[in-house]
Amino acid sequence: MGYALPIEEPDGSLVKGTVAGVGADDGAMLVRTPRGVVRAERAAGCLLKPRCGDTVLTAFLPDGEAWVTCVLTRAEADGEAELSLPDRTVLRARELSVESETTSFVSRTISTESTILSLGGGLLLQGFAAVQTAARRVGERIARKEGRYGELSERTEGLDERSAGRMRVKSESSYRLRAENADVRAEAMLDLDAERIKVG
């Protein structure tokens, strides 16, 4: 802990106090200081939201206003903190890194604009009521892909081309192929096995 010589401040003073109460909406709080219990506002630069019992630095202005400028120590060392930012906040940096064991985003709208967007992880879980993707080109390189859908509907305006080393289609009840023109070719063998086969 650092110490400094006392400085006379004719235009105001800074004192250490303890938060005795926090307002619900307006951000005002009661601070117990050597001058008694005062009502103080949280300064815009005090991003860490004070809680009851926290030790704070309070600035007293000549006009009688009191402002909490920062939180010095927390009442409970539980590692929990809340940053209260203005309604519109912009973070600017050439490189921004966020490191955490768990990250949670709660937002009505999330917009991401990037020349290159890279996602990497061991497991990707998605749960959406609806997903819309608009892309000029999508390229995927996946070792194994599995999907389970209640209902799947796909529509391709142009050419739908699939190429595979082996392809297997399995349907529990029925499988229907309907087209104006259908061309089925096999270079070696074509095997049709069914109890009944209807042509025409």
Score class of each variant (00 low, 15 high):
Trp67Ile: 01
Trp67Met: 04
Val68Asn: 01
Val68Pro: 00
Thr69Asp: 00
Cys70Leu: 03
Cys70Ser: 13
Leu72Ile: 15
Thr73Leu: 04
Arg74Cys: 03
Arg74His: 03
Arg74Asp: 04
Arg74Gly: 03
Ala75Arg: 06
Ala75Lys: 09
Ala77Arg: 05
Ala77Asn: 12
Asp78Gln: 07
Asp78Pro: 10
Asp78Tyr: 05
Glu80Arg: 13
Glu80Lys: 13
Glu80Met: 13
Ala81Thr: 05
Ala81Gly: 06
Glu82Asn: 06
Pro86Thr: 14
Asp87Val: 09
Asp87His: 07
Asp87Tyr: 08
Arg88Gln: 09
Thr89Leu: 07
Val90Ala: 15
Leu91Ile: 09
Leu91Gly: 11
Leu91Cys: 09
Leu91Asp: 06
Leu91His: 13
Leu91Glu: 02
Arg92Tyr: 07
Arg92Cys: 12
Arg92Asp: 12
Arg92Lys: 13
Ala93Ser: 08
Arg94Phe: 01
Glu95His: 15
Glu95Ser: 15
Leu96Asp: 08
Ser97Arg: 11
Ser97Cys: 15
Ser97Gln: 10
Ser100Cys: 06
Ser100Tyr: 13
Ser100Lys: 08
Ser100Gly: 14
Glu101Ile: 09
Thr102Asn: 10
Thr102Lys: 15
Thr103Met: 15
Ser104His: 09
Ser104Glu: 14
Phe105Asp: 00
Phe105Thr: 15
Val106Lys: 11
Val106Met: 15
Ser107Trp: 01
Arg108Ile: 07
Thr109Tyr: 06
Ile110Asp: 05
Ile110Trp: 09
Ile110Phe: 12
Ser111His: 05
Thr112Lys: 14
Glu113Asp: 15
Glu113Pro: 01
Ser114Val: 10
Ser114Trp: 01
Thr115Trp: 06
Thr115Cys: 02
Thr115Leu: 03
Gly120Phe: 01
Gly120Tyr: 05
Gly122Leu: 07
Gly122Arg: 09
Gly122Trp: 04
Leu123Lys: 10
Leu123Gly: 07
Leu124Tyr: 01
Leu125Thr: 14
Leu125Arg: 09
Gln126Thr: 10
Gly127Tyr: 07
Gly127His: 15
Phe128Leu: 15
Ala129Leu: 08
Ala130Arg: 12
Val131Leu: 13
Val131Glu: 10
Gln132His: 04
